[in-house]
Design a protein around this nucleic acid. Structure first.
Length: 797
RNA sequence: GGGCGCAUAACUCAGCGGUAGAGUACUUGCUUGACAGGCAAGGAGCCGCAGGUUCGAACCCUGCUGCGCCCACCA
């Protein structure tokens, strides 16, 4: 037993306190360049690019999980001797960032309009410099071992150049085009958003049945039928101002005789035809549907087919405008001008009611789309936008996954991906925002469109010099889909070829690390991001952007509810780190990962369990230290020489307990290594937990007490050696999961040499730092026998 | 309307063809010598329901029920 006043017993306090340890180690690691792949210059390259968090973001539990997984992978590979790169960075997140800074401005009574575009963008840059690094600092607290010297931002010069190159190339290839179509418009953000940026929610509303009178001259002719109007059902009565037809199903007996007749649109006075179209479901409502080509996707399609006029009735903020009405119509509608769409709805319904033109109003539930950023109800809105023609890009992207060049883990996401990719619609990439990459397109008065990587000075067609750049910016995902190669130096790192094609210059990061090894992400952005990276990677690099996609679940609260500010169930990872330390949080998250990629319910109990585990291994180490040979009992020792002596000590088991723990340990090393190779982080974490607590502490450490206090010097020495070496080896296995505490303890045993640094000792068995003890291979049968014997033996004890 | 996932002890979850597991919680002891953030022992379960395959099913197949999610042009 340790003598009183032993410096080692004092070196470790009774309970583990993560605070100082974590701060200290991260700094040492970073300062010594341990996170740079170059510390393993000869290893095979292994690369992960971080899913770039929004610059405005702050670390939430979802990030914590995502980054923990990546850090486990990258630390594991680094320990295996790979030239392991984890490239960090942030996304400019156009709409999200703009919204945040707008809100800030509002507090000071300013608005972006008052500031003007240039000043506003300047303001965002300022804001970014000041607060943008927050999430990256928080990543460090988690222990994320990113190579910060390679940090990127989507609006860095190089990455901006990449986006321009991307667009111009796609344009020249005919894969990008401009079109006037209905887009999902957010009247609050005043921009188009893509289909997948719309959240649908079923909402309670009404279905209004409106009477549209037949034209007078026809009423008399129809008098015999007793019909002088058609009833249409709609959830959006205010759009009736823009109706340019009423459609019925061609087979609908009720209306067949009316097809081709004209109606008079109430309130407006416009004459509109009754048309036939198979799209109309005769069983819905009255079987007659009002057609508003400028404000409904279905109606737009019908309008195209039947050549109907498209009358836009709304401004970009969603208020009624009368620009596209005839003067007579406009005169009728003056009272609605400037009314917000929902106020207009009320007013129009009232007026129709007063005119006796409402047959009935029913309660009705339907799904309403809203902006994923601000939850404003989106408006199908007619406008000029840029699109990516996605079909030609999607085909190779599907093939790559089908052929196994990219593997989804777990596999079920393959199906989801392929299903999604085969039904892709063209991607609207222009946004009416101020923050983002400006579209490299200029318009000349002569109506020439110039698409160019560098700003043109004159129009190539008419020689005019007053060129105006497209005011819009790109969808954020249009830049982040280049991330796996733009961050590594594309396009400048390419030699030869057109449009950034060719091949990466040898020796460049791009040549070394592309394709990256694995992408780690939640399933929520497979559609937004993963699919697009695959398309663009294949298109511009002629190779997949990553070989594997590890898809994990989302972190939910203890009840399984989504964490959200409005529900108030958000658990802040930084508060937890402050409470229990980063290691406990990391272990909790990783131990909760299931092989099926289920969502994770994060309960306090689990955090507590893992905090206790930290303490457990801390105290086990304390015990082992106190029982090392006398000479070793100094802070920072055993010295290398002493250490060598310990290792040289005969590790050959002297009794059943020795055999048993070595066998257990050996199996754990093997199992955990395999589990990590197979991306089963949850099982790996659980296995380690059980080994440390259940085998090492509960059994071997308890049994060692008699050996250490006994008279047999040899037994004592062997026990000491096994205690120490199994512990040190286990610390290495645990290190990817819990980097801080393992480094701290390890360093105390190992003359200041941590787990993280460059490898010193090489072992013939190449598992290198990952597995310190090189055990002779034990025949499986013998191992099993020993296990059984040992278990029986211990039952007797 | 199409697709996916989940249902195992009070709670959170492992197990995925061979006698039901862990942690937490609970009960009863123990503990001045690594750790009370500890140790030992214990109670706990028609493994969602109904069929089928099999010598044998929590595990494989079919159907059903209940929750959750994704996709789709429900006026």
């Amino acid at each position: 037993m340790a003598s009183p006043g032993n410096p080692l017993t004092e070196a470790l306090s009774k309970t583990y306190d993560p605070k100082d340890v974590e701060q200290k180690w991260y700094q040492i690691w970073e300062e010594n360049g341990y996170f740079k792949p170059e510390i393993n210059p000869d290893g095979p390259p292994f690369a992960i690019v971080i899913p770039p968090p929004n610059v405005t973001g702050s670390l939430h539990m979802g990030h914590a999980l995502d980054e923990t997984v990546q850090d486990i992978i990258i630390r594991y590979h680094r320990m295996r001797g790979d030239k392991a790169l984890w490239l960090p960075g942030t996304d400019h997140a156009g709409i999200a960032t703009q919204n945040v800074v707008e809100k800030e401005l509002k507090k000071t009574g300013l608005s972006k309009e008052k500031l003007g575009r240039e000043k506003f963008v300047e303001r965002i840059w300022q804001w970014k410099e000041e607060y943008g690094g927050q999430i990256l600092r928080q990543l460090r607290r988690l222990g994320a071992s990113c190579d910060w010297s390679r940090e990127r931002f989507t609006m860095d010069a190089g990455l901006s150049k990449a986006v321009t190159r991307e667009f111009v190339t796609l344009y020249k290839e005919g894969l990008v085009y401009r079109g006037k179509r209905l887009v999902n418009w957010c009247p609050r953000c005043k921009t188009a958003i893509s289909d997948i940026e719309v959240d649908f929610e079923t909402k309670k509303g009404q279905l209004w049945y409106l009477k549209y009178p037949l034209e007078k001259s026809q009423i008399s002719r129809e008098a015999g039928h007793g019909i002088d109007y058609i009833i249409v059902a709609t959830t959006r009565p205010e759009t009736m101002l823009g109706d340019t037809a009423v459609a019925v199903n061609p087979d609908d007996e009720r209306y067949r005789h009316l097809i081709g007749k004209m109606l008079v649109l109430p309130l407006v006075g416009r004459k509109i035809p009754i048309i036939k179209d198979e799209l109309v479901d005769p069983t819905f409502g009255t079987g007659a549907v009002k057609v508003t080509p400028a404000h409904d996707p279905n109606d737009f399609e019908m309008g195209e087919k039947h050549n109907l006029p498209r009358i836009n009735i709304l401004s970009e903020t969603g208020a009624i405008v009368l620009d596209e009405f005839t003067p007579e119509e406009a005169a009728n509608l003056k009272k609605y001008a400037g009314l917000d769409r929902f106020k207009a709805r009320k007013a129009i319904v009232e007026d129709l009611e007063a005119a006796g033109l409402i047959e009935k109003i029913e309660d009705y539930e339907n799904s309403v789309g809203s902006c994923y950023r601000c939850h404003t109800v989106i408006e199908p809105y007619l406008s000029d936008q840029w699109y990516v023609a996605v079909k030609k890009l999607a085909e190779p992207a599907i093939r790559a996954v089908e052929e196994g060049k990219i593997q989804f883990i777990p596999d079920r996401w393959t199906k989801v991906y392929i299903n999604w990719m085969t039904n892709l619609k063209d991607w609207c990439i222009s946004r009416q925002l101020w923050w983002g990459h400006k579209i490299p397109v200029w318009y000349c008065k002569c109506s020439e469109i110039i698409v160019s990587e560098t700003p043109p000075t004159t129009c190539p067609k008419c020689g005019g010099t007053s060129l105006v750049q497209d005011p819009d910016v790109f969808d954020t995902w249009f830049s982040s889909c280049l991330w796996p190669f733009s961050t590594l130096g594309w396009p400048d790192a390419m030699e030869g070829g057109v449009g950034g094609r060719g091949r990466p210059r040898s020796g460049s990061d791009l040549a070394t690390y592309y394709p990256t090894s694995v992408l780690v992400t939640g399933y929520d952005i497979i559609t937004f991001w993963v699919s697009r990276m695959i398309m663009m990677g294949l298109h511009f690099m002629q190779d997949v952007p990553f070989k594997k996609v590890f898809v994990h679940g989302l972190v939910r609260d203890a009840q399984g509810k989504k964490m959200s500010k409005s529900t108030g169930n958000v658990v802040d990872p930084l508060i937890l780190i402050g409470d229990v330390g980063a290691d406990a949080l990391r272990l909790a998250l990783s131990a909760l990962i299931s092989g099926q990629g289920q969502d994770i319910k994060l309960a306090d109990e689990k955090i507590k369990e893992c905090r206790n585990f930290c303490n457990k291994i801390w105290n086990a180490s304390r015990y082992v230290m106190m029982n090392l040979p006398e000479g070793a009992q100094v802070e920072g020792s055993p010295s290398p020489a002493q250490n060598a002596k310990l290792q040289a000590t005969d590790l050959k088991p002297r009794n059943l307990a020795d055999k048993w723990i070595l066998s257990r340990y050996h199996r754990t090393v093997k199992a955990v290594t395999e589990l990590l190779d197979n991306y089963d982080f949850g099982e790996a974490a659980r296995r380690l937990y059980e080994f440390v607590w259940g085998d090492y502490c509960d059994w071997y450490l308890e049994l060692s007490k008699s050996a250490l206090t006994g008279n047999d010097a040899k037994t004592k020495q062997t026990t000491q050696a096994i205690l120490a070496q199994v512990l040190l080896g286990t610390l290495k296995l645990l290190h990817p999961f819990m980097p801080f505490i393992t480094e701290e303890i390890y360093q105390k045993f190992n003359a200041g040499e941590g787990v993280c640094g460059p490898e010193r000792a090489t072992s013939p068995n190449a598992v290198s730092r990952h597995n310190i003890i090189v055990l002779a291979a034990w025949p499986a049968a013998e191992e099993k026998l020993i296990d059984e014997q040992a278990e029986k033996h211990m039952e007797i004890l």
